[in-house]
Amino acid sequence: MATFGQRLREIRNEHNLTQKQFAKMFQLSESAIGMYERDEREPSFKLTNEIADQFNVSTDYLLGRTDNPRPTDYGDDIDPKEIAEFEVFVNNPNHGIFFRDYLSAPEERKKELLQFWRFIREAEKDRKPGDRQGE
């Protein structure tokens, strides 16, 4: 699989952007882009998400976890930003036990886990710190 740096360079070149132009898009220095492309520096979650959103690719693609650049098609009712939010939730060590196999799961299982997360998110949306689960 490719590295973040390779994917970044690939995307930049596909869009005919110089390192300077690309850096300006994300308010970074040209040297930072060069370091990312040489895999000398790792991006923040925020930057990874911003690049994914800007170029309509998945964060998994940027990070070299898949060769499929487009977000998984879960259907019209699921927004790619929701997928990104879910992946942040899944990667949180406090939440990830149940969802730990999400990234390597087959597409059908990913859909099931996403639906389960939606249920949890909705049920817990008004819960405040210190409230017991389900109250």
Rank of each mutant, 00 (worst) to 15 (best):
residue 10 E to D: 14
residue 108 E to K: 15
residue 125 K to Q: 08
residue 42 E to G: 04
residue 55 F to M: 13
residue 12 R to Y: 07
residue 118 R to G: 13
residue 123 A to L: 11
residue 19 Q to A: 14
residue 66 T to K: 02
residue 16 N to R: 09
residue 81 K to Q: 06
residue 79 D to L: 01
residue 41 R to C: 08
residue 78 I to N: 00
residue 15 H to A: 06
residue 18 T to H: 07
residue 16 N to K: 08
residue 135 E to M: 01
residue 72 T to P: 03
residue 16 N to D: 04
residue 24 K to N: 13
residue 109 R to I: 13
residue 81 K to F: 00
residue 36 Y to V: 10
residue 27 Q to F: 06
residue 97 I to N: 06
residue 37 E to I: 08
residue 103 L to Q: 03
residue 29 S to K: 10
residue 18 T to K: 12
residue 99 F to M: 02
residue 67 D to L: 10
residue 125 K to E: 05
residue 72 T to G: 10
residue 74 Y to G: 06
residue 9 R to N: 12
residue 89 F to E: 10
residue 85 E to R: 12
residue 69 P to H: 04
residue 42 E to A: 09
residue 31 S to E: 03
residue 38 R to A: 12
residue 15 H to P: 12
residue 121 R to Y: 05
residue 104 S to P: 00
residue 116 F to I: 14
residue 135 E to F: 00
residue 11 I to Q: 14
residue 87 E to D: 09
residue 56 N to W: 08
residue 59 T to G: 08
residue 131 D to M: 07
residue 23 A to L: 06
residue 42 E to W: 00
residue 6 Q to E: 15
residue 10 E to A: 07
residue 10 E to C: 05
residue 6 Q to R: 11
residue 60 D to V: 00
residue 119 F to W: 11
residue 5 G to N: 07
residue 126 D to F: 12
residue 51 I to F: 03
residue 108 E to C: 01
residue 44 S to Y: 02
residue 125 K to H: 11
residue 20 K to Y: 01
residue 31 S to D: 02
residue 111 K to A: 15
residue 119 F to L: 13
residue 76 D to W: 01
residue 133 Q to R: 10
residue 114 L to Q: 09
residue 130 G to M: 08
residue 41 R to Y: 09
residue 46 K to T: 12
residue 70 R to P: 00
residue 28 L to Q: 14
residue 133 Q to M: 08
residue 37 E to T: 08
residue 50 E to G: 01
residue 117 W to G: 01
residue 97 I to A: 14
residue 67 D to M: 02
residue 109 R to E: 15
residue 4 F to Q: 02
residue 71 P to F: 11
residue 113 L to Q: 15
residue 96 G to P: 01
residue 50 E to R: 14
residue 119 F to S: 07
residue 24 K to Q: 15
residue 56 N to C: 07
residue 113 L to C: 07
residue 13 N to E: 15
residue 111 K to M: 02
residue 92 N to A: 08
residue 70 R to C: 09
residue 87 E to H: 05
residue 97 I to K: 10
residue 69 P to M: 11
residue 130 G to A: 10
residue 51 I to Q: 04
residue 44 S to P: 02
residue 46 K to I: 11
residue 49 N to T: 09
residue 133 Q to E: 02
residue 67 D to F: 01
residue 14 E to K: 15
residue 105 A to I: 12
residue 93 P to K: 06
residue 29 S to W: 02
residue 74 Y to W: 11
residue 56 N to D: 15
residue 10 E to T: 13
residue 104 S to M: 11
residue 60 D to F: 02
residue 14 E to M: 09
residue 64 G to F: 10
residue 97 I to C: 07
residue 62 L to R: 11
residue 4 F to W: 04
residue 77 D to Q: 12
residue 53 D to L: 03
residue 133 Q to H: 04
residue 108 E to Q: 13
residue 46 K to C: 02
residue 70 R to L: 14
residue 68 N to T: 15
residue 101 D to K: 13
residue 21 Q to P: 09
residue 23 A to P: 05
residue 38 R to I: 00
residue 118 R to F: 13
residue 99 F to L: 10
residue 98 F to V: 07
residue 76 D to C: 00
residue 23 A to D: 13
residue 9 R to H: 12
